[in-house]
């Protein structure tokens, strides 16, 4: 059983998540009309044997999309974080605030 440490919910079983896709694929901008760029983004995959960056959806949990680093040979999950940068930043801010509050509390 894979278990993902959701940054919003904590450690949860595989059953709660849906795999989405290879997160290393960068879609071209809509202004980019070159066939080659779109062909490569839509169809070609590095398909790494080793550490793979991917998106999972916590569909039966907080419904957030997560960015996961997982080894495709061993299934070892080395990192789970919010996929969207603004959520990552907000989580980090909240964690900092929590630390400050608990530090202040421990002094009093």
């Amino acid at each position: 059983m894979l278990r993902l440490n959701c940054p919003f919910c904590g450690l949860r079983d595989h059953h709660e998540f849906a795999y989405l896709e290879d997160a290393s694929v960068q879609m071209p901008s809509f202004e980019d009309t070159s066939e080659k760029a779109w062909f490569e983004a839509v169809f070609l995959r590095k398909n790494l044997r080793g550490v793979h960056v991917e998106h999972w959806h916590h569909i039966h949990g907080c419904r957030m999309i997560l960015r996961v680093e997982r080894d495709t040979q061993t299934h070892v999950i080395s990192k789970v974080e919010a996929a969207h940068p603004s959520f990552r930043q907000r989580l980090s801010d909240v964690n900092d605030e929590t630390k400050l509050i608990s530090k202040a509390r421990s002094k009093t």
Binding site: M1, L2, H14, H15, A18, Y19, D22, N47, L48, R49, H52, E54, W56, R70, T72, Q73, T74, H75
Partner: peptide
């Protein structure tokens, strides 16, 4: 199973 893998073993879901 639904996610990229080179491990020849399956998972519970």
């Amino acid at each position: 199973d639904g996610y990229n893998s080179y491990a020849q073993r399956g998972n519970l879901p």
